[in-house]
């Protein structure tokens, strides 16, 4: 029996009133049992014994992104499209690498490009100047691309069978690592003007990539950058990662990159 009103369970109806006190006194709400209709201003409400329901969700927080990524991946696989997620810190030369690649190989293979930046369409304009179809995604305050953004971009781009889709992620070595976009391969670009210990400073990103493109190697004579140390740091995080040394400006090493793309 309910100790409050004598009913058989949780269906009791209580009446309560708010004591006519100043606001600070209302923090500890005064509830009293009163006969129904006893006073003006009295209200009735449902049980005051909270009924708790536990929902066992057991759901991956990134489930929605991962599901959308698999849809993208299925689309790419069905059309035999090589989709590459290009990640790096800002200024490593991702766009320059793409410009050079498209200029050199545009006649041999159809390319499509998805550009991700917080603001502006400057990268898309650079790519479009070379003639490749491109969609710019502006993430605003976001720091990475997510699978649904790429989904919308590829719906616009309509990449053709046997083509290559480059997804240039937002320049950021932290956040993009967590978000599968449905790519076939993830390529990290690092330039020799950065520190060689970046792989251990940003291990998540290096761990999830299959290839590390070391860019701007034409500048090595002017820098104290130890390429071997970079590779050793990267292998500590990801022993299976491959390396290609290039200069998108001078063209050095680009043939090795093209061979990796299967071209």
């Amino acid at each position: 029996m309910c100790a409050t009103c004598g009913c058989s369970g949780n269906e009791h109806k209580l009446t309560a009133f708010l004591a006519m006190k100043k606001p600070e006194a209302l923090t500890g709400l005064t509830v009293a049992t009163l006969p129904p209709g006893a006073r003006p201003g009295v209200q009735s409400f449902a049980p005051d014994t909270p009924v708790k329901t536990v929902i066992e969700l057991e759901r991956d927080i990134l489930e929605k992104n991962n599901r959308m990524a698999e849809r993208n991946r299925g689309f790419f696989e069905a059309r035999n499209i090589l989709a590459i997620n290009l990640v790096s810190s800002p200024g490593s030369g991702k766009t320059a690498l793409l410009e050079r690649t498209l200029a050199d190989l545009g006649a041999r293979r159809q390319f499509f490009v998805v550009e991700g930046d917080q603001q502006t369409a400057r990268d898309a304009e650079r790519i479009a100047a070379g003639g490749a179809p491109v969609v710019q995604i502006n993430t605003g305050k976001g720091c990475h691309l997510e699978a649904h953004m790429v989904h919308q971009a590829i719906r616009q781009l309509q990449p053709t069978t046997d083509s290559i889709v480059f997804i240039e992620n937002v320049g950021n070595l932290v956040c993009p690592s967590m978000f599968d976009l449905g790519e076939g391969r993830r390529v990290i670009v690092i330039s020799v003007t950065e520190g060689e210990d970046k792989p251990v400073k940003y291990p998540d990103m290096f761990r999830s990539a299959q290839l590390c493109v070391i860019n701007k190697v034409d500048l090595l004579p002017y820098l104290k950058f130890d390429v071997q140390a970079l590779k050793e740091y990267a292998r500590q995080v990801n022993p299976q990662i491959n390396f290609i040394e290039v200069s998108a400006t001078s063209g050095q090493g680009m043939e090795t990159w093209y061979a990796w793309l299967g071209l």
Binding site: A16, F17, G41, V54, L57, E58, D60, I61
Partner: peptide, 23 residues
Amino acid sequence: ELRIKSLTLVDKPTVAKAPLRWN
């Protein structure tokens, strides 16, 4: 892991706001 394990919902009474009068 990055998982939502569970939610506990509580069917709390929402106290209807009575017109307040100040003494």
